[in-house]
Amino acid sequence: MEKQASEKNIVLEIEDLVVNYETDGVVVHAVNGVSLRLEKGKTLALVGETGAGKTTTALSILQLIQDPPGKIRGGSITMDGDALLTFSERQMESIRGDKVSMIFQDPMTSLNPVLTVGQQIAEVIQIHQKVSKAEAEQKAREMLELVGIDGGRAGEYPHQFSGGMKQRVVIAIALACNPTLLIADEPTTALDVTIQAQVLELMKELREKYQTSMIMITHDLGIVAETCDEVSIMYAGRIVEHGTLRDIFKETRHPYTVGLFNSLPNIKRRQEMLKPIKGLMPDPSNLPTGCSFHPRCDYAQAICSTRKPAQTFLSDTHFVECLAYESNTGVTITKKEG
């Protein structure tokens, strides 16, 4: 992560973040030393299986991890020069929704069923800006127009909207205070494909307009290709491969990333059987020693179970955590087919 280039305009920097979920004697290592940095206006994708620690990483930026059992055990999160982990609850409240906004996975449940959408958009504006109720409601109507919904519908309740429109409302809430950073936690998983495209397009448009940086959490590599600038592949609480969109899609290096791509149906070779990654995510309360991917890795050698891989930089922007790319380990990856 120690690249010197593009030092300018870093919006968010996470160093060595460690998050555990601790319950009676069992410690679940959800995030084990994640580092990432995000430039202004750029979009970073966090990709990985369920339970890889993507959402936990994102929630720790807002310090919204349920405590107990969630505990941030190490590392630092810096945003615009402020160390967020030292902030008090009150200071965090002033940041949430204002500088950092979050879009949740399911728009059906992230809107309050008994409040009108106008009230819900106005709420965030009233919390963070010193405006009267009428002004906030006016602004709420403008936000609705911005996401392509008739402002006259501000007085309606969430159940009167379709799923795609609800997600637009959620986006309107997230962008109402013009945040520096937008965290989207699988924003389109609950939507059908045609609506997905619309929502993604809308998010892209608005982000470019306001120069908002974004962390996009997803397991859909198609969405990543469409919307993101940089990609971090997460596995068992670590970033195992990171690079620009091109690095990851064209110069795929880590066996896990390769496995992810192989798990996708390929429209060009339709007879081909899908090759899912064998096995399951390791139990995060009992992670394997060495490289945590080695039990599922096709190329694993004895050394993989004893030695933890370090970050190996393949270029300025691209790094991978795999012993195959470190010198003198004896691990090699033989590509079987193109």
Partner: peptide, 11 residues
Amino acid sequence: EFVEAAKAIGA
């Protein structure tokens, strides 16, 4: 989730 969302907007 809507309570979580409310927390995320700083309520």
